[in-house]
Design a protein around this nucleic acid. Structure first.
Lengths: 123, 123
DNA sequence: AGCGTTGTCAACCTTACGGTTGACAACGGA
DNA sequence: TCCGTTGTCAACCGTAAGGTTGACAACGCT
């Protein structure tokens, strides 16, 4: 679980943590505040926050004895970039496939061009 | 780990599985084929594929004794939707904050509106 | 029919995860 | 100064994750 992308995905794999992130989009919250809706101990929530923090999704400052939690939405970009990169690749592949199928319908089925689309080097 | 969104995030939290997904954007692969680059047993790869399959990211058909693995890229939308939804919320909040700050400079700082925004249900 | 290839299933091991309780630090307010 | 509030740290527990090895099913080939 070394790299950040893994930590971000792992952090968001938990429904409680996703819900916390969702609520933090409305503004900063204290830990008690965040914990209120869930039927778990405050300590458990504290642990969840640690996970979110280590993923870079959240930062915690100090304000007297309170510890306001703040969402760092830029980290979303990390995921979006990864997802969009491979979604795009998959779609390009579909287009290529469509093209091949189209040319197969167009032309004489006897001897087809074997398009052999260039294999892109993975990552 | 009941809901699909959790399963998808969890599936992509593993670097090996992310790499498999990345390679599958170039086209279907057999299990042995997929396993080749990694320094783990074939059985481990088989398990990874099971995780990806249960997350809906991948399907497996049959072709003689081979079991070609196919990427189901539509599942990406699940994540993108979730991410974009809350990213947008966070950005809207920034805009509102900017507006408040602007009005605070403009107006008398005595008493401001307390917005108390409606809590969105995270699903 | 027998063999090699391809892949899964089952059992097991170790480590990480999510939860608990108990102790305690840090701070504001009476 | 003492107390309540807020939150973290540490120890522990049960379960799931990711890895291994061994057995074996399913199929093509000769």
């Amino acid at each position: 679980m070394s790299d950040q992308l893994s930590r971000v995905f792992a952090a968001l794999a938990d429904p409680t943590r996703r819900d916390m992130v969702a609520r933090l989009t409305e503004g900063d919250h204290t830990v008690n505040d965040l914990a209120a809706p869930y039927d778990v101990s405050l300590q458990a929530v504290s642990k969840h926050l640690k996970v979110l923090e280590e993923a870079g999704l959240v930062t915690r400052s100090r304000e007297a004895q309170r510890r306001p939690v703040h969402l760092e939405a830029e980290v979303f970009d990390l995921m979006t970039k990864w997802i969009e990169r491979y979604r795009r690749r998959a779609e390009e592949r579909f287009s290529r496939l469509d093209a091949v199928l189209a040319s197969m319908q167009d032309e004489d089925p006897a001897h087809r061009d074997h398009h052999d689309p260039q294999e892109g080097t993975a990552s």
